[in-house]
Design a protein around this nucleic acid. Structure first.
Lengths: 195, 195
DNA sequence: TTTTATTGATTGATCAGTCAATCAAAATTA
DNA sequence: TAATTTTGATTGACTGATCAATCAATAAAA
């Protein structure tokens, strides 16, 4: 079997499998066996490449974050004005694959894990700060600095809150409605101070 | 030992212990032993009274919810006008003990669990709906019905989002700031349509 | 031959859940 | 009142299952 150079292929397959299994299962209490099976390899191989379950999970959240960042970068590049960039950030947050039940379930599981794992928390803090600073940067040209901080805080909270509420599938707020709600908040706050 | 009538005492002690252990641990992956130890009884007794770990956890979330409801009822009674009642609802959501790191960690853990446990999800949906309908009921006197739904959705999302972000302890938004942010949102939305 | 990839089998630890036994208060009987 | 029975409370010890992690063995490429 051993074609040389399988390592990156296997690593990716395992990380993707982990994300899928976690999303389906809605929890980090998934077994290495499940993940390995999903990736089509033996559990032993997962340990061989990642050393431990924890390490595999760390890589998994890292990949989730990278995906989000790449999307944000692309969306920001496509937008011209600060106001357009704000809309782009909101749209990226609610894009279909991010808002899929499994993805939301995975995020939630990682947030819970962050209560225990320092490293997981670090990653989620990076996400939170990035969203915030992206928002602030594009709000500052449109309003006073202190207002920008304030609005960014509120918008970020609303985005995260819409995720949480989506996870219950109780009163499913559609993607469009979620975007509208957040856009509305930002527009109204900006309207208060001009533009 | 057997003084008769220990059952309710033990049940409460175990539920409280579970909440504490879950909050400290930041996860539902806590052992019956830990919970029982915290309650000062043997693991076997926990099983005796609750039958299973799952059942104990269900009772635990039920108690968390009851606490919140009682507080809300009290706060609503003390407020007079609809606008005051809205403020009361916001204040209750962010009251100190609810906003304590351990309580937030427990909520988060239950949200994650809700992905798997139908019953847990039911409870959380009750919370979500209750908050929403309380908000709507007190918004309706102040604005058109469709606006009330819209504002309630946004405010509820913001509240939940502020919780989530609090759980990371990254950019700790104080209780007062959280209340202010939500109040601000509601006031501004209402300002748009009068009052 | 050496190196890389891969797995089956195994181990050790952890836990939920069970059960038989004990202890002491309360109820009943003498 | 004293003796006896009943019942609720409680636990230690055990079991069976699950799982992360290890390792020695194998297979194929280089």
């Amino acid at each position: 079997m051993p074609k040389v150079g399988m390592e990156p292929v296997r690593r990716k397959a395992l990380v993707d499998a982990a994300l899928r299994v976690i999303g389906d299962h809605g929890s980090l209490s998934v077994t290495m066996s499940e993940i390995a099976k999903q990736a089509g390899v033996s559990p032993a191989l997962a340990h061989h490449y990642f050393g431990s379950k924890e390490q595999l999970l760390i890589e998994t959240i890292r990949s989730l974050l990278k995906q989000l960042r790449d999307d944000a970068v692309t969306a920001l590049k496509a937008a011209r004005t600060p106001r357009e960039k704000l809309s782009a950030l909101i749209r990226v947050s609610f894009q279909a694959d991010q808002f899929a039940p499994q993805t939301i379930a995975a995020w939630l599981a990682f947030y819970a894990e962050a209560q225990r794992s320092e490293e997981t928390r670090r990653f989620l803090m990076i996400y939170a700060r990035r969203l915030r600073s992206n928002l602030v940067a594009n709000l500052k040209p449109l309003c006073p600095a202190d207002a920008a901080e304030h609005i960014a805080e509120g918008a970020a909270a609303m985005i995260d809150g819409l995720y949480i509420r989506q996870s219950l599938r109780s009163a499913p707020v559609s993607i469009e409605a979620s975007i509208a709600l957040t856009e509305d908040y930002v527009s109204m706050q900006l309207g208060r101070v001009g533009i």
